[in-house]
């Protein structure tokens, strides 16, 4: 097996395991509209997304 082929196989394996780790840990899987500012201690109501159709 040539070095180039080893690199190809290794990068394929690395891509697969990396994608598996990111997926299984739910990285970037959170909903994007979650307002976490209360947790940081502002105390205020940042409830601004009042829906009026």
């Amino acid at each position: 097996m040539t070095p180039a082929r080893i690199i190809i196989v290794l990068s394929a394996a690395a891509t697969l395991s990396g994608a598996w780790w990111l997926s299984a840990n739910g990285v970037w899987g959170e909903s994007t509209d979650l307002d976490r500012s209360i947790r940081t201690g502002s105390g205020g109501n940042t409830f601004t997304q009042t829906s009026v159709k």
């Binding site: 979650l34 976490r36 997304q49």
Partner: peptide, 20 residues
Amino acid sequence: GIDVEITDPDDAPVFQTARE
């Protein structure tokens, strides 16, 4: 409109959100 608020086991707020 649906409002959701979550607190963690230490009762600290994790987040809140409002969806339609």
